[in-house]
Design a binder for these strands. Structure first.
Length: 390
RNA sequence: GCGGUCGUAGUGUAGUGGCCUAACACAGCGCUCUGUGGCAGCGUUAACGGCAGUUCGAAUCUGCUCGACCGCC
C-alpha cells in the first residue's frame, strides 16, 4: 500500500490523498461504508460500486463465526468471495470486545449521551463484562451460534485477517467503553499497546501463494485513550512509534462535536504526517467536515446504511423518516438535487408505501440513496479542500 | 317470525360484582440509534353498542333496545 498526499490545506489539517492498494486507488478523505458480513446489507456489490463507494470495511469477528475464514480463503479471499473488485478493510474484532462486553451489559453504544452518564453507571478498574472475558493476552467470547468458548487475541485476529485478505487490516484492540474511568482506560490502553506489538510481529512478511496476507496487506495500529487527554497523547505517541502502515483512531469521542474535534487534534498531532489515518466508527454528516479538518483521511460509519433500514433518508432538507404517512402524498424524489438512480426513478410516496408494506426493496432503495448522498457529501468536502476553502 | 350466541381502543383478544384510574399484542403518532441485530428501546394517542334498573359498588347481574352471526319455520 502506498499513500500520497497531493494537497494540504492551509486553513486546517485537512488533506487530499491517494491511497494505492493492489485493488485500486482511493481518493481521500473518504467514507468507508460498512459491510460487516461481507455485504453492504440489502445491496449487491455492483450496486455498492454504483454509489461511488471506493472502499468497504468487513468484520473479522463476524466472518470468523460465519462462514469462517477458511471458506473465504478457499473462495480466493474476500474480494472474490463477495465480488467486490475495489479495496477492502477488515476491522480486527476489537470493537466486539466492547459491543459484546460492556456495551451489551450497559445497553450503550460508543457515543454515550449525557443522560446515560447521569444514571451513575461506570466502568472502573476491575469491572468485568458478563458475557466475555478480557484477559491479558486476548478475549474469550462466547459464540452466539453454539455457545462455545471462542478465543481471539492479537495473533488470532491477524491470522484470520490474513486469510480474509483485505487490503488494509487493523490491529486487535480493546475499544474502551465510554463510561470507563481513568484507571480502567489506562489499564485497557496498556493491553491495546501490548497487543499492537504482537500484531506487528504476527503479520506475515512473505506473500502467500494466493496473494492473501503478506507485505501487500497494510496493517493499521489503533490509538485508544478514551476521553483523557494525556492517555490519548500517550497512546498516539506509542502507536505512532511502531512500524504500522497507517493508524486507526478508536474509542469514544465525547458527546458533542466540539469535544470530538478537540480530541482528534490531540491524537493527530502525534501521528506521522505521511501515513494515513482512519477514524473508526464515526461519520454523521454533521461530523464529516470537522473530522476531515482535524486531519482524518478515511472513516467508516454505519449511519447511512443502518438508518436506511429504519426508513430514514438523508437529504439536503435533513433526515426524513419515510415511514411517516405524510410521505404517501409526496410525489417527488427523496432529494430534489440528487441524481442517484433511486432519485431519478423513484418517488417518496412509493418508497413510503414499500416501507409500510414491509417490503425489503424499500430498505434497498434508501440504502442506495444514502450511500450516494454521503459519498457526494464527502466529494464536496474534497472539492472545498482543493479550492482552499477549508 | 321464533330460538340461540355475541357486542371492550383502528384490528385481535383479556377481564365475568370491588385489586378497572380497564390489560396485552399489533396498527397509529413521536423520539433514540456513530469499528451495524434488516433490530431494539422509550414516550404517546385511543375502548366497555345504547337506555333504564338491581346494588354501598356494574365492563361484569336483570330488562328493553339497536347491531352482528348461527339455527329453525
Amino acid at each position: 500500500m502506498n499513500f500520497h498526499i497531493s494537497r494540504k490545506s492551509k486553513l486546517s489539517n485537512a488533506r487530499i490523498g491517494f491511497l494505492e492498494t493492489s485493488h485500486g486507488v482511493i481518493e481521500t478523505p473518504c467514507l468507508v461504508p460498512v459491510a460487516t458480513q461481507a455485504v453492504v446489507k440489502t445491496l449487491t456489490s455492483e450496486e455498492v460500486a454504483e454509489t461511488k463507494s471506493q472502499i468497504l470495511i468487513s468484520n473479522t469477528f463476524h466472518l470468523h463465526l460465519k462462514p469462517g475464514e477458511k471458506i473465504v480463503q478457499k473462495a480466493g479471499g474476500l474480494h472474490d468471495f463477495m465480488n467486490w473488485k475495489k479495496p477492502l478493510m477488515t476491522d480486527s474484532g476489537g470493537f466486539q470486545v466492547f459491543s459484546l462486553g460492556f456495551g451489551r451489559d450497559l445497553h450503550i453504544g460508543k457515543m454515550i449521551k449525557s443522560d446515560a452518564k447521569d444514571a451513575g453507571q461506570q466502568v472502573i478498574l476491575g469491572s468485568r463484562p458478563k458475557h466475555i472475558k478480557i484477559m491479558q493476552d486476548g478475549v474469550y467470547f462466547k459464540s452466539p451460534i453454539d455457545g462455545a468458548e471462542l478465543f481471539i487475541g492479537p495473533k488470532e485476529s491477524i491470522a484470520i485477517q490474513e486469510k480474509l485478505g483485505a487490503d488494509i487490516i487493523f490491529a486487535f484492540d480493546e475499544c474502551t467503553p465510554p463510561l470507563a474511568d481513568y484507571e480502567y482506560t489506562k489499564n485497557s490502553l496498556l493491553k491495546t499497546h501490548a497487543w499492537a506489538k504482537i500484531c506487528l510481529k504476527a503479520k506475515s512478511k512473505v506473500a502467500s501463494a494466493k496473494g492473501l496476507g503478506g507485505p501487500k496487506q497494510a496493517l493499521y495500529g489503533i490509538v485508544q485513550g478514551g476521553k483523557y487527554k494525556d492517555l490519548r497523547i500517550e497512546s498516539a505517541k506509542y502507536i505512532a512509534s511502531l512500524d504500522f502502515d497507517g493508524f486507526g483512531i478508536g474509542g469514544e469521542f465525547g458527546d458533542n462535536k466540539k469535544i470530538m474535534s478537540e480530541m482528534l487534534h490531540w491524537v493527530v498531532a502525534e501521528l506521522p504526517e505521511k501515513k494515513p489515518r482512519h477514524l473508526l466508527g464515526i461519520g454523521q454528516l454533521e461530523d464529516m467536515e470537522n473530522i476531515i479538518k482535524a486531519g482524518v483521511d478515511t472513516f467508516d460509519c454505519t449511519i447511512p446504511t443502518h438508518y436506511a433500514r429504519r426508513g430514514i433518508a438523508f437529504t439536503s432538507e435533513g433526515k426524513l423518516n419515510l415511514n411517516q404517512t405524510k410521505f404517501l402524498k409526496k410525489r417527488e424524489p427523496l432529494d430534489k438535487g440528487c441524481v442517484c438512480n433511486v432519485c431519478l426513478n423513484y418517488k417518496k410516496d412509493y418508497i413510503c408505501h414499500l416501507l409500510r408494506a414491509k417490503e425489503i426493496t424499500a430498505l434497498k432503495l434508501i440504502t442506495f440513496h444514502n450511500l450516494c448522498y454521503f459519498n457526494n457529501y464527502v466529494e464536496e468536502i474534497r472539492g472545498k479542500i482543493k479550492k482552499g476553502e477549508i
